[in-house]
Computed example of a mutant assay.
Amino acid sequence: MTDEIVYGRNAVWELLQSGKPVNKLLLQGEGTAGRFQDIVSHARAQKIPFQFVDKAALDRLTEKAKHQGILAYVAPREYAEVDDILALAGEKGEDPFILVLDEVEDPHNLGALIRTADAAGVHGVIIPKRRSVSLTATVAKTSAGAVEHVLVARVGNLVQTLKDLQKAGCWVSGAEAEGTEVYRSDLTGARVIVIGSEGKGLSRLVKETCDEIVSLPMKGRINSLNASVAGSILMYEVLRQRGSRN
Rank of each mutant, 00 (worst) to 15 (best):
A56W: 07
R154Y: 01
D106Y: 00
D95L: 09
R131P: 08
E176N: 12
K55H: 14
K55G: 05
A65E: 14
D102A: 10
V133Y: 04
L61C: 09
L113C: 04
I98H: 12
T136V: 08
L86W: 03
D54F: 03
I114P: 02
T62P: 03
V100A: 12
L88P: 09
L165V: 14
L61T: 09
I127P: 02
V147N: 09
A117E: 03
T138K: 15
R130W: 11
K64Q: 14
V172L: 05
F97W: 01
A112D: 09
V133G: 05
E78W: 01
V104T: 12
S185F: 03
A177H: 01
H123C: 00
A80G: 11
R77I: 11
S132G: 02
L86R: 05
A120H: 06
A57Q: 09
A112N: 10
L88N: 12
H149M: 03
R184M: 12
G90V: 04
A75K: 13
D95R: 12
A120I: 06
T138G: 08
L187T: 00
A144C: 13
R184G: 13
P107G: 12
E148L: 13
G189F: 01
Y73P: 03
S143Y: 12
R130L: 14
L61I: 11
R60A: 15
V172N: 07
H67M: 13
K141I: 07
V104M: 13
K55F: 09
G189T: 00
V182N: 04
I70K: 05
